[in-house]
Nucleic acid binder design. Structure first.
Lengths: 219, 219
DNA sequence: TTTTATATTTAGGTTAGTCTAAATATTTTA
DNA sequence: TAAAATATTTAGACTAACCTAAATATAAAA
C-alpha cells in the first residue's frame, strides 16, 4: 500500500484523535486537527474508505480499519524513533523535534526504520515519554496516572508528557522538570487544585493545568 | 526561498547536467534526466525563471543563476551527508543508499544538516568518493584522472566513482574494488582498451567501460 | 415536536505538476 | 539554401489536495 504523505497524515490524525475521543471520529474534529476545511476531510475520507483504510458511513463519522490502524501505528513508530535520533544523537532539545519528525516520518523504505531502531539501541520511549511501537505494531499503553492524582506526601517520577506542545515543553524546562525527575507532593490547594511540589532544585507551585498533563509513576 | 521537492529536483538535475555538458542545458536533456516529457520541463523552467533560479530564453536552453546554483549545491550537500549517515551509521551498502538519500535530501530545516555533519565528524567525501560541499557551498573539484589514463606499470588508489548507478556499484563489489583500493596497471590492450590490473585480491581484466568510470590518484 | 443551530456533504472552482497532440523554431542534410 | 528531421513550445486536459458557497442531514432548544 503506497500512500501519499497527506493520506498518512489523515490516518495518523484519526488514530491519535481516537485515543482522547470515542471510536467514531467526526469530520470537524479531523479538520481542526489538520487545519483544513470539513469539506476537504469528506473528500479524503471517501478516498481512504475506498482503500479500506477507514470505516465510513455518511454523517456517522469514521474509524480506522485494522489495516488503517496498522499503518497509523507504523507512522507513529517512525515519528518517535526519529525524535529519539534527533535528541539523543543530534542533541536537539525535546521541544525542537516535533516538526522535523513530522517530515522524517514520511520517508519511504522497507529497511530504514528497523536499522535506525537498532542504531538507537531499541529505545522504548521517545523524548517525551511516549511509548514506541515495536515493528509488529504492538504498543505499550500509558498507565493513566497524572501528577494531579498523586496524594499529599507521596513521591513520583515523571514518565511522560500528555501535551507535548512547544510552549508546554519550554515551560517544563524552565521549572527544571524533565523525564525521570523526582517530585514529592507537599500539599494541595483545594481552591484551584494547584499543588506545592518538592523537586531536586527546590519547592515550586504547580497549577492544575500542569499537573494533569504530566504522566507519573508512584515510588 | 521555499521550494517544492519538484523544483529542487529540477535545480539539482540542471546542476549535475551542467558538469558533463556545457553551461546551457537543453529541455530534452532535463526531461531524460528526470523521466518527464519535454513539455513538462518547459513549464517548470518558466516557473524557475520567474523565481530567478535559472537563466532562460526560449529555445536557447537554461543555466543556473547564482542563487539557483547555491540551492542546487545545498541539495547535493544534504544528499551526500545523508549517504554517509546511511552507510557509516546504519551500515547500508554503498549501492543501497541513493534512493533513500533522494528522499532525505528534501527534509527542510535550518539546523538539521549542520548537526548531522557534526555528528558524522565532518566527512569530506560521500561513500562513492564524491566531495561534500561545505556549508558555504564550496566544493572541491574532482581531479579528472580516470583509471583509463594510468600508464602501464603505474599504481593508483581508487578515490571516486563517476557512474554511481546500482549495477555498476554491485559489479565493483564483485571485483572487490572499493574506495581506497590499490590498483597496479600491468598491461593495456590497444584493441579494446581493456587493461590487466593487479588488485589486493589478484589480477583482473578491466574493460574500458569500467576504467573510464573510476576516479584514481597516482601513487 | 417543531424550530433553530450546527455538522456534513455536494457542487463547482483553484493550483501544482504532469500528460498528449499540435504548432512553431532550430538544426541537419542533401 | 531549401527540404527534412529534430527540438521546443503552446494549447488543452488530467489528478491530488485543497478551497468557498450552497444544500442537506442531524442534534439541540424552545
Amino acid at each position: 500500500m503506497l500512500l501519499s504523505q497527506t493520506e498518512e497524515n489523515y490516518l495518523k490524525a484519526i488514530y491519535s484523535l481516537g485515543y482522547a475521543n470515542s471510536n467514531k471520529i467526526s469530520t470537524t474534529l479531523i479538520s481542526a486537527e489538520l487545519n483544513t476545511k470539513a469539506s476537504s476531510v469528506t473528500d479524503m475520507i471517501k478516498k481512504l474508505s475506498d482503500k479500506d483504510l477507514v470505516h465510513y458511513k455518511k454523517y456517522q463519522g469514521v474509524s480506522l480499519t485494522e489495516i488503517g490502524r496498522d499503518i497509523a501505528i507504523e507512522i507513529v513508530r517512525k515519528h518517535r524513533l526519529w525524535e529519539v535520533f534527533l535528541v539523543n544523537k543530534l542533541h536537539y532539545n525535546w521541544d525542537e523535534v516535533h516538526e522535523l519528525a513530522e517530515q522524517l516520518e514520511h520517508i519511504k523504505s522497507e529497511t530504514l526504520i528497523d536499522k535506525l531502531e537498532a542504531f538507537l539501541d531499541f529505545p522504548t520511549h521517545d523524548p517525551h515519554g511516549d511509548p514506541i511501537p515495536d515493528r509488529n505494531g504492538n504498543i505499550e499503553h500509558h498507565k493513566n496516572m497524572m501528577l494531579s492524582s498523586i496524594e499529599n506526601g507521596d513521591s513520583c517520577v515523571v514518565i511522560g508528557i500528555k501535551d507535548s506542545s512547544d510552549p508546554f515543553l519550554k515551560f517544563l524546562d524552565k521549572l527544571h522538570i524533565k523525564l525521570g525527575s523526582h517530585l514529592k507532593v507537599v500539599s494541595k490547594e483545594p481552591f484551584d487544585n494547584s499543588m506545592l511540589v518538592e523537586t531536586e532544585s527546590g519547592s515550586i507551585s504547580i497549577s492544575y493545568q500542569i499537573s494533569k498533563n504530566l504522566f507519573v509513576k508512584k515510588i
